[in-house]
Computed example of a mutant assay.
Amino acid sequence: MSLTSRTFSSPVTEAYRWLDTRPPSDLPLLNAAQAAPADPPPPPLRAHMAELMLHDDAAHKYTGNWGLREVREAAAATTSRLYGGAVTAGQVGLTSGCNQAFVAAMASLVAPGDEVILPVPWYFNHAMWLDMAGAVKVPLPTGPDMLPDPELAASRITSRTRAIVLVSPNNPTGAEYPPDLLTAFRDLARARGIALVLDETYRDFLSTPGAPHDLFTDPDWDEVLIHLYSFSKSYHLTGHRVGALVTSEARLEDAAKFIDTVTICPTPLGQKAALYGMTQLTQWLAEERETLLARRAEVQRLLPQLEATGWHLSGLGGYFAYLRHPFAAEATQVAKTLLHDQSVLCLPGTFFAPDGDAEAARHLRVAFANMDHAGLGDLAARLAALKV
């Protein structure tokens, strides 16, 4: 069996194929499928990138596997400032998107047959790579609050367990993991000699101010914590693929073997754009967060309209609403009917869970971050009008 045949096809690609069979409709398409900014980078960043393209020869050349030193230094300083901890440039590796940060970390952690614990619903690209790596996914159910339980996770650790993977704010549920929960998982991972992989792709859009947690204040944080981040989401650089892997220098040295055989390095133009974002766009990013939080608040305001027709909000974040639908049909059928009848494209919960997961079959992930208030009102009306 080939590596790629061990896993499922891209859920986003599958959902976009549904558009090919969408009947003509007077309703404009509302795309709530992909959790990425639709707008390009802000004008000052685009102007800076244009200058780099024209006048900076280094923007077109290889860098080291883990990127340019000045960008790694800025990322380390930004991480240290946000979390109140101590991170050095040698502990930061820049990657071609946050997905590659995850894959590189897993390449340094797991061998075929090793186990990795994933809370369910999980991020499907994490599940896909573990399949292709020959690793065993160990599902960790979450409760009604969409939060994983450290005690339940402890009961699922075996001699083959290499890591627990957490995503906060969560994709697909939007749930924000409280600091004490993350601390409990860190302590569990340390006690059992495994890694805690924490993906904070949507960190910059948390609903609460201040540091998301204090894990970096631990002087030995890199013995346990492997941290993942995405510049792509924060600065609208999705097509330029810029992420970060923050971990021990020893792990970066080992994982560099993977990077060197895949991309060699992230694009220098993307790296330099991320540097500009970190150093010049602090206020712009704060305003972007406020815009997304206002949209989240609008979803909450519209919720009674949905609840009146049987919908239930299970999770809400800066980018996603995880909605339990009121129908007897399975979520994939509900999502296809929603597209056919109401011209709304979103992803079924079944794309984020093992086959046969009953809770996933009751849910849809609705990515609302690219919709203004009028669009959100239209979305709520179409969901409320759906009949399956």
Rank of each mutant, 00 (worst) to 15 (best):
Ala101Lys: 04
Leu118Asp: 10
Arg69Met: 10
Arg72Pro: 07
Glu70His: 15
Lys61Cys: 02
Gln91Phe: 01
Pro119Glu: 11
Gly93Glu: 02
Ala86Asp: 15
Val87Ala: 04
Arg69Phe: 11
Trp66Thr: 05
Ala58Trp: 08
Val92Thr: 04
Gly85Val: 07
Arg69Asn: 09
Gly67Gln: 10
His60Arg: 00
Glu73Asn: 07
Ala77Gln: 14
Val92Tyr: 03
Tyr62Leu: 13
Lys61Glu: 04
Gly64Thr: 13
Gln100Gly: 02
Tyr62Pro: 04
Glu70Asn: 14
Arg72Trp: 10
Gly64His: 14
Ala86Ser: 15
Val116Arg: 05
Leu94Met: 12
Gly67Tyr: 09
His60Val: 01
Thr63Gly: 10
Ala74Gln: 14
Ile117Tyr: 12
Gln91Ser: 00
Ala105Val: 01
Val87Tyr: 03
Arg81Asp: 08
Arg69Cys: 05
Ala75Asp: 05
Val116Glu: 04
Leu118Tyr: 14
Ala74Asp: 12
Thr63Ile: 09
Ala105Ile: 00
Tyr62His: 15
Ile117Ala: 07
Arg72Lys: 12
Leu68Ile: 06
Ser108Glu: 01
Ala58Glu: 13
Glu70Phe: 08
Leu94Ser: 14
Ala77Ser: 15
Thr79Trp: 12
Gln91Ile: 00
Val87Pro: 02
Val110Thr: 06
Ala89Gly: 09
Gly97Asp: 06
Gly93Phe: 00
Met106Phe: 00
Ala75Lys: 11
Ala76Ser: 13
Pro119His: 12
Leu94Asp: 11
Val92Ala: 03
Tyr62Met: 04
Gly90Asp: 14
Gly113Ile: 12
Val120Leu: 06
Val71Thr: 15
Val87Gly: 04
Leu118Pro: 13
Asp56Leu: 05
Val120Ala: 06
Ser80His: 04
Thr79Val: 10
Ala104Met: 01
Asp114Asn: 12
Lys61Tyr: 03
Val92Ile: 06
Trp66Leu: 04
Arg72Asn: 08
Phe102Cys: 09
Cys98Val: 11
Thr88Ser: 15
Tyr62Glu: 11
Ala101Asn: 06
Leu82Ser: 02
Asp114Pro: 06
Met106Leu: 03
Val110Gly: 04
Ala111Pro: 05
Gly67Lys: 10
Leu109Pro: 00
Leu82Asp: 02
Gly67Ile: 05
Val87Ile: 04
Gly64Trp: 09
Leu118Gln: 11
Asn99Thr: 11
Ala59Asn: 01
Val110Arg: 04
Gly67Val: 04
Asn65Ile: 05
Tyr83Val: 03
Leu82Met: 09
Gly67Pro: 07
Gly113Glu: 08
Leu82Thr: 01
Glu115Gly: 08
Gly64Asn: 14
Trp66Ile: 03
Asn65Phe: 13
Phe102Ala: 14
Ala86Lys: 14
Gly64Phe: 07
Val110Phe: 05
Tyr83Pro: 03
Tyr83Gly: 06
Arg72Thr: 10
Glu70Tyr: 10
Ala101Ser: 15
Met106Gly: 02
Trp66Pro: 02
Ala77Tyr: 06
His55Phe: 14
Ala107Asn: 01
